[in-house]
Simulated assay, not measured.
Amino acid sequence: MSTASQQNMTAYRFRPNEDTPAVETLQIPTPSADEVLVKILAAGVCHSDLTLLNPKSQMHSALVPAGSFTMGHEAAGVIASLGSNVASTNPELPIGSYVAVYALNSCYKPSCYNCSHGMENRCGALAYGLGSDGSWAAYTAVRATCVVRVPGTPAQIASGVASTATDAILTPYHAMKTCCGVRPEHTVLCVGIGGLGLNAVAIAKRCLGARRVIACDTREVALRLAQEAGADCGATPDSLPGMLADRQLVVDFALDFVGTQATYELCFSAIRCGGTIHVAGIAAPTLSIPPLKAMTKELTFKTSYWGTKRELVEVLQAIADGQLNPKVEMRPMGEVGQVLEDMRNGKLTSRVALYPPAASSTTVSL
């Protein structure tokens, strides 16, 4: 099989108790028998990365035992080399394949209850970029079962878009389609029009055909982008109650893509009796849900985690078919610190994907 020569690359890594990615020089990995080496074309930046880098967060504390690892859990690239078993076990993945990485690294063992029941997103294995080496580098080695062919070329589906599909689109798609079951007769409220929320608006309207999609954010620019993505109307948190009353809108599903007490309570105030609040954001470590108050509306409360590999295939096909046209900004990987700071300060109006520097010598030998 083709292998990578031992060359160096720059990687941006998590270190326990540090709040910024550490810049390290590593050898380009050689894929093990069941792995492929992916040359990274784009690697997304997510709010989860901010949470991970906060030493006071539950996520940071949970991953401290993993030690240092390369960050980045949203990735798209080209297969540069194959492990010794891949050609026979995964013939659909030849060298040169344009792929997206399913970062959850699920085991897919028959003995795994979650994997064997279509819930590989809850397998429990350490995800690439969230406990094991991810994609904030020029190359990453991942198991062949954790990549999905992108239905097109980088010229047809930009690498930044393909990388974003693996989380920022997959996560709201799973929440709305699988967990909530949004259908054409429903009215959906999306609170927080950031990386996930903006894609959620498009998914609800253009993939699931929701009758009405309402966007809510503190930023006027976010509301404008939401309308471009398919929202029927938008409002700031202060003006949302009045708009719902004036237009006599009845909200079936309220999705909180922020995850604070204030945004949860906003969803609660907007949702109809018997409706569903779905929390997909993790900005706060805890939420208070007074049971008696929730009972008065007979609410359903839902959460979700990422999505399945099958759903990633569906998301990529929706992009290829033109149903979804995600907004992604590309920046050099060396600017990751500034990207994280811009995200922290609410300055980003779209998802950002990073492109890596070249390897320190020649490209991977094939």
Rank of each mutant, 00 (worst) to 15 (best):
A320W: 06
A125M: 13
L312C: 08
W136T: 00
A270V: 00
I319V: 10
E74C: 08
A22S: 13
C112G: 01
V336T: 06
S2D: 11
A294R: 01
A62Y: 10
R15V: 15
A254C: 05
L26E: 14
G230M: 03
Q317P: 03
L50C: 06
A87E: 13
R344E: 03
L53E: 09
R211D: 14
M343W: 06
M59P: 00
L126M: 12
A254P: 07
S360L: 13
T10W: 06
L130W: 05
T20K: 14
E185A: 14
I271V: 15
L299A: 07
A168K: 06
C267T: 00
Y12I: 04
S361H: 14
G72D: 10
H60P: 02
D49P: 03
A158F: 08
K109E: 15
P16D: 12
I282A: 15
V201Q: 10
E92F: 11
C112T: 08
I79P: 07
A280T: 13
L223P: 01
H73C: 03
S57G: 09
V99A: 06
P151S: 05
D232H: 13
T218R: 07
G152H: 08
L366F: 15
T164K: 10
R149V: 13
E120W: 00
M1R: 08
R310L: 10
A229Q: 12
N17R: 15
M243E: 11
L292F: 13
L340S: 02
W136Q: 00
A280L: 13
V147D: 11
C273D: 14
G346A: 01
R310G: 07
N90S: 15
P291D: 03
K109R: 15
N8I: 01
G129R: 07
V191P: 01
P16K: 06
H278R: 06
V221A: 12
W306H: 13
S97W: 06
P332S: 04
M333V: 03
A353K: 06
N199D: 08
T171K: 04
Q248K: 14
V45R: 05
Y98C: 00
A168F: 07
A125Y: 07
Y108G: 12
L126P: 10
I40P: 05
G281V: 02
K177V: 10
A42R: 09
G44D: 12
D167V: 01
S132W: 00
G152W: 09
R143I: 00
P16E: 11
C115M: 02
H60F: 03
M295N: 12
N90Y: 15
P21L: 11
G181E: 06
I319E: 07
R149K: 15
H60G: 05
N105K: 02
E311Q: 12
G230F: 04
Y139E: 04
L354F: 06
C267P: 01
K39S: 14
A318D: 15
V147R: 09
G281Y: 08
A138C: 09
V23Y: 01
A359W: 00
T363H: 11
L196W: 03
L26H: 13
T3I: 14
A175F: 10
G197K: 05
E120L: 03
